[in-house]
Design a protein around this nucleic acid. Structure first.
Length: 217
DNA sequence: ACCCAGGGTCATA
DNA sequence: TATGACCATGGG
C-alpha cells in the first residue's frame, strides 16, 4: 500500500502539476476559509472572504465583536450563513482566548487537534485542514473526494470511517507537510475531472496506470 | 427545474 | 452506532 499510495501521488502530480494550496494570504485566512468551505464550493467562499476583507473584518477580534447577524450577512454567499457565523465566532473566541497564533503554534499536534475538535462546528476534516494548511502539521486531510477516488480504484470498500482513512495515508507515507499538502489538493483537483456517479470511468488516465486489472488493460 | 459543492450537529431508533 | 433531517447560496 505504501507503494501504491506513492504511485497515485506521482501520477496525479505528473498530470495536474503542483496546486499551491491553500489559496489564502495568512494562516488565519486559511482557518476562516476552512470553516466557510464546509459542504460548499470554493467559489462561494471566495466571495465571502472578499466581503470580510472589504469590511475590514477578517481578524479574530473583529469577528468576535460583530454581532452574528452582521457577520452572517458578510458571509452570506458561502451558504449556511447563520450556522457558519456562529461557528466562526466560536472558533475566534477560542483562538483569542488561547492567546493567538504564536501561542497555538507551541501546541503539539495531537493536543492541538484534540482542542480544535472540542470547538462547536469544527469536525475532523475542518480541524485537519487547519492543522495542515494553517499550522503546517503533517496531518492528512480526508474528504468525500478522497474516499470516492480510493473506492473507484478498488483500494477500499467505502464503509471505512474518517480516522481509518486518515491512518491509511499517515501510516503509509512519510510525514511530509509539503507532500500531504499537494496530495490532498491533487485529489480534490482530480475529483473535479471524473464522473461523480459512474463507478468507473474508463477514460480516466489513472486506472490504466494504477490498477490494470480493473481497467481491463 | 434539478443536482451538488473542499461538513457538522442533532434527533431518533 | 447508524442513518436522516437540517442548514442555504450560487453555478452547472
Amino acid at each position: 500500500m505504501q507503494q501504491t499510495l506513492r504511485q497515485l501521488y506521482q501520477q496525479l502530480l505528473k498530470h495536474y502539476g503542483k496546486q499551491y494550496w491553500w489559496p489564502a494570504k495568512s494562516p488565519f485566512e486559511v482557518m476562516v476559509g476552512a470553516i466557510l468551505t464546509q459542504n460548499t464550493s470554493w467559489r462561494n467562499v471566495e466571495m465571502a472572504i472578499v466581503n470580510l476583507k472589504q469590511a475590514r473584518c477578517l481578524s479574530p477580534q473583529k469577528i468576535c465583536q460583530l454581532n452574528v447577524e452582521e457577520l452572517a450577512q458578510l458571509i452570506k454567499s458561502s451558504g449556511f450563513h447563520t450556522v457558519k457565523a456562529k461557528r466562526l465566532q466560536a472558533y475566534c473566541a477560542w483562538y483569542v482566548a488561547q492567546g493567538g497564533l504564536k501561542k497555538l503554534k507551541r501546541f503539539k499536534t495531537q493536543r492541538l487537534r484534540a482542542e480544535l475538535l472540542k470547538i462547536h462546528g469544527i469536525g475532523p476534516e475542518t480541524a485537519d485542514a487547519m492543522l495542515l494548511y494553517a499550522f503546517l502539521r503533517p496531518v492528512f486531510v480526508i474528504d468525500a473526494y478522497t474516499k470516492r477516488i480510493l473506492q473507484r480504484l478498488g483500494w477500499i470498500q467505502g464503509m471505512e470511517d474518517y480516522e481509518t482513512l486518515r491512518a491509511l495515508f499517515e501510516q503509509n507515507l512519510k510525514p511530509d507537510v509539503n507532500v500531504f499538502n499537494e496530495y490532498h489538493a491533487l485529489l480534490v483537483q482530480h475529483a473535479k475531472h471524473v464522473c461523480r456517479t459512474k463507478p468507473l470511468c474508463q477514460q480516466c488516465h489513472l486506472y490504466a496506470k494504477l490498477c490494470p486489472a480493473v481497467s481491463g488493460n
